[in-house]
Amino acid sequence: MNLDYHAYDADNHLYEPIDAFTRHLPERYRTAIRYVDVEGRTKIAINNKISEYIPNPTFEVVAAPGAWEEYYRGNNPDGMTLREFTGKPIRCLPAFRNPEDRVKLLDEQGVYATLLFPTLASLLEERMKDDINLTHAAISAFNRWMLDEWTFNYHDRIFPTPIITLPDPRRAIEELEWCVENGARAVLIRPAPVPGVRGSRSMGLPEFDDFWNAVEQTGILVTCHASDSGYDAYASDWEGGRDEFLPFKPGAFRTVISHGRPIFDTMAAMICHGLFERHPSVRVACIENGSTWVAPLLLELSHAYGKMPQEFAEDPVETFRRHISVSPFYEEDIPGLIDHIGIDRVLFGSDFPHPEGLGKPLDFIKEVAHRSPEDQKKVMSENLKELLTLRPAA
């Protein structure tokens, strides 16, 4: 498939090699992140605790892109497992590891440009939340590896998203400014409460205003990509504890109660705690969180505004529609999402090359085939292209 305009994909991924977290990690933290042998298989260990978050953290072999599409479309009458859907794994392609080969693949796919997110790095913050210094050091080290290998803007085609962690707002500002100085057009912030020495709190509270002022000064896009947000603990209150969030072994109960919950709460916190009121130039894109949470959140915001309008500077539904963009999953009710937030706030995202994404990214256009060519172009291209333009506050 070829479009007569440049397609901008809001959700592509890289697969990290084993030195991604350790190459720039300060010597005093060398033992905090290790790859270890467990019965002949390589696993990652964080603070001496082996993680099963990603079963194969070296990514030497991976599931084929789009292998789980029918599962996620709810087409699984035989009750197959994800492993059965996977079939035979493939060798990790060079295009999943470096930008030169990735651009060639984008050309083959008919995609002009893409945001690029990490895969394994999404486990770091939750497993380090008891050590703020380690968290900041590890995230900073990963960002420097990303700059080495991918840059933060590869020929205006690939836009890797360095991570900003928020426990120490001062250090978050320093990292943000370094990212922008090195060409970043977007940064990634985990949709979760921010851990701290006095407990966790909302990133929308005034104590983070200096950080959000810096975001406004740079004009950079903030993305909230799905991650380990720590919500497995709530499911464990019902089903009993387990050591960590296992995204590929969710179970029915955890799937039902946790789907969309972290991003629902994060966007609610941003709006209800006045982040956009105090920082009117901040733009946020919700990536790989789906969109089924949007309508319930807008309904709750509307009800809250009707009961206590004094708590808001304006109708919070309008705040959402002005500041927040959403990249829905291909299997969801995209026409309904457009009705709720408007065509200008919906982003095409393929999740390539993950197995739960689309094997052919431009297949996403089928999900907006009911819209006019002009609207299709907005979703597939113009909306993200506009967000990637740095717009510093006046």
Rank of each mutant, 00 (worst) to 15 (best):
S325E: 01
S325V: 02
V326G: 04
V326E: 05
V326P: 00
V326K: 08
S327F: 08
S327L: 03
P328N: 10
F329R: 13
F329E: 07
Y330Q: 02
E331Q: 15
E331I: 01
E331K: 07
E331A: 14
E332H: 08
D333L: 05
D333C: 05
D333E: 05
D333G: 09
I334Q: 06
I334T: 08
P335C: 00
G336I: 01
G336H: 06
G336V: 00
L337I: 02
L337K: 04
I338M: 03
I338D: 01
I338L: 01
I338P: 03
I338H: 07
D339W: 03
D339H: 12
D339K: 14
D339V: 04
H340T: 12
H340L: 15
H340P: 05
H340F: 09
H340S: 13
I341Q: 07
I341C: 08
I341F: 09
I341P: 09
G342D: 11
G342R: 03
D344T: 13
D344G: 13
D344K: 15
D344S: 15
D344R: 14
D344H: 14
R345F: 06
R345Y: 05
V346Q: 06
V346L: 04
V346W: 00
V346H: 04
V346K: 05
V346T: 12
L347D: 14
L347K: 09
L347Y: 10
L347R: 07
F348S: 07
F348P: 14
F348K: 09
S350G: 11
S350V: 01
D351V: 01
D351N: 13
F352K: 05
F352W: 14
F352Y: 15
P353I: 03
P353R: 11
P353L: 01
H354I: 12
H354W: 04
H354E: 13
H354S: 11
P355F: 06
P355S: 14
E356S: 13
E356A: 14
E356P: 00
E356K: 12
G357A: 07
L358C: 06
L358V: 05
L358E: 03
G359A: 05
G359W: 02
K360C: 04
K360S: 10
K360H: 12
P361M: 00
P361S: 02
P361I: 00
P361N: 02
L362H: 11
L362V: 08
L362W: 09
D363C: 08
D363W: 06
D363V: 03
D363T: 13
F364V: 00
F364P: 14
F364Y: 15
F364W: 06
I365E: 15
K366H: 15
E367D: 10
E367W: 08
E367T: 15
V368A: 02
V368F: 09
V368W: 08
A369M: 09
A369Q: 14
H370G: 10
H370P: 11
H370N: 12
R371Y: 10
R371N: 05
R371D: 03
S372L: 01
S372W: 11
S372G: 10
P373E: 00
P373C: 01
E374V: 15
E374F: 09
E374R: 11
D375E: 15
D375G: 10
D375F: 07
Q376P: 15
Q376A: 02
K377Y: 02
K377C: 10
K378H: 07
V379M: 01
M380R: 12
M380S: 11
E382T: 15
E382D: 14
E382Y: 11
